[in-house]
Amino acid sequence: MSTVTLKKVCKTFGEGELAVHALKDVDLEIKAGGFLCLSGPSGSGKSTLLNMVGGLDRPTSGEITVADKRIDLMSKSELAEIRLHNIGFIFQAYNLIPVLTARENVEFVMQLQGIPTEERHQKSTNILREVGLEGLEDRKPLELSGGQQQRVAVARALVSEPALILADEPTANLDSTNAENLMNLLRHLNDDHKITFLISTHDKLVMSHARRLLKLHDGQIIDDIQQR
């Protein structure tokens, strides 16, 4: 069974002569447990594709199925539910909530899911330990380094064990050591927990970790390479 399926997905920004075709008839099938990288130059449609799969934006045409549900037909509330229970996001700019501590950021999604306090606390403690942030649970984002913030963002995406994690340039703001550590962590989670990863990146290090590498150019998949 596929986790994600895209059929003839198009996304056009603007109209008429000013129209920009960010995605053109993209067909894609991502199996459960996959570890995919989207690569390509800026403007090739990587982030747009990621946003479509995450239900953060709607396609101009075509079908998108996530966990057997047509998300292109869903209302905003239904999309929120799908994202809440099935998809985790790791953003390039970390996007942590500044008024919440590291632990509260990690627990945010679980609170929305209505998970009891004790269970939430247990899970957040474990995941923060797993990403190497033990002892920093009560710090707010501004009191953490860039690498630590990104690890909090990763912990937040992983803690509720979604079927699919979408990561947009996750190593863009990290030094090479932190980037390597992050990729090892993601790969480990993919191996052990069979979480599906879809990562857009320019980073060769990230690409080297991918099992499947998709190359995009002008809104189309021009290459689909199976790696290790």
Binding site: A32, G33, A67, K69, E78, I82, E161, A163, I195, T196
Partner: peptide, 21 residues
């Protein structure tokens, strides 16, 4: 965890929404 199946809590019924709220 079965990654292929949508989370069972993903319902959008009014009662669910109220309790979640």
């Amino acid at each position: 965890m079965d990654p292929n199946i949508a989370h069972p809590q993903a319902g959008t019924g009014g009662g669910d929404a109220y309790h979640m709220m």
